[in-house]
Design a protein around this nucleic acid. Structure first.
Lengths: 229, 229
DNA sequence: GGCGACAATATTGTTACCAATTCTCCGGCA
DNA sequence: TGCCGGAGAATTGGTAACAATATTGTCGCC
């Protein structure tokens, strides 16, 4: 097996834990991240938490202001679109490279993902589809052999994950994105770099258009006070 | 004016100092970075140095292994090429955006850079040309308005700066890159996004080809092996 | 009743110290 | 001679206390 994801695991388990808590929505945007709280929550020393926050700040997931602490960074829609535009460029590159370097076993794996995605959409299994979606993008990066590009995209994905998640939950969205994903898979399996790049770009372009369509309601709707408290 | 809103200046002056020392060649690749040494060298506490090394490690400039300290990361040629491939994609995007959004005053500034570059190459002023080159790339990013892409490229540039510097020192290299730079400038000034993207991609493609030519002196790795018989 | 200064609190930033780990060097031994 | 093992030094990682700073609540004054 290709093992677990290697890029974002560098500086200890605390970083991963906090990152997971953020991307899973356990901490909402603009929520304060007090060092002592996290220290107790994750059973780690304050220094470890401090380092983790530093790294997450560098990663763009949290915002740190001197003497005022860290809070979950709220990525505005415009920036999410910027992120997707960069991803469009880089993932286009990766798709092309993947089409050049793909092996037979990888083609088989992609075909498996393809079937799974079609089945998930057919049966309305949104979460399963989202999971396969993540896996497809990740495996495509690995197949491209472009570690640098993979790291860049991984980081960008982390920042915009909330927007993408919200988008994936829109009813009818899977039926739109499914053919795009299938086109990417088919192009890679056909070892057609140009088609793969074009398919990847079209897919992310579609995501951008869809994101633009989701009206971002102004301030006043987000209430951080959820459940436990 | 937009002033100097550099992305990588966030976590204190120590980070910038160490980064400057690394990119300026003051610390060579694989050189150990002992915390106490840096602490004394930059008159900062060990904790500050620690944080700085953490951030630089996250940035890809230094390599940190647990209990073994940090050292300047030696970016292999293959990775430098990967980095340039990503830059090719992202800077292509930025060039296109810049061509869409460029203002009249910015066009005037670009024309100034254009003249300066031509004059520098004419007179053989390598350093001045390199400086203008940096400025051109940086201003193009700013004009594109793509902050995300700018941050990505800035980071990638930092990692491969040594290779690019070595390349810029090659005799005759400026005469090759000058027309490419001029093409980028002209395309942006003509507000032609497609041409700008193409010009940027061609330029970086040329850099990649040139880099491939530098350090491939035949079979076997040309490591500076001390006096073999 | 509203507003500004002041104290109390909470939180981060820094420093000093100790523990854990690795590297180096030296000596013993087959 | 070459290799194994251990003591010592060097360096990093972690922890706790301290200092600096921002936030919040309170009191007096207009």
């Amino acid at each position: 097996m290709s093992g677990t994801h290697h890029v974002p695991s560098q500086s200890g388990p605390v970083v991963e834990a906090i990152r997971a808590a953020i991307v899973s929505g356990d901490y909402v945007p603009d929520q304060r991240l007090v060092e002592t709280d996290l220290s107790e929550r994750f059973s780690a020393s304050r220094g470890a938490v401090r380092s983790a926050l530093l790294q997450l700040g560098n990663e763009g997931l949290v915002e740190r202001v001197p003497h005022r602490g860290a809070r979950v960074r709220a990525v505005p829609l415009a920036e999410a679109i910027e992120i997707l535009e960069v991803r469009m460029a880089v993932e286009g590159l990766c798709a092309a490279k993947a089409a050049q370097r793909v092996t037979e076993t990888e083609i088989a794996e992609l075909r498996g993902i393809r079937e799974g995605m079609a089945a998930a959409v057919e049966s309305g299994a949104v979460m399963a589809y989202s999971e396969l979606n993540n896996r497809l993008h990740r495996r495509m990066l690995e197949m491209s052999g472009q570690r640098t590009a993979g790291g860049v995209i991984e980081r960008l994905r982390g920042q915009a994950v909330r927007h993408q998640f919200r988008l994936a939950m829109q009813p009818g969205r899977p039926s739109v994105s499914l053919p795009e994903h299938l086109a990417i898979i088919d192009a890679i399996c056909s070892r057609d770099p140009a088609a793969a790049e074009e398919a990847a770009r079209q897919h992310l372009g579609s995501v951008i258009r869809a994101l633009r369509g989701t009206a971002a309601p102004g301030p006043g709707t987000a209430v951080p006070d959820s459940g436990t408290s």
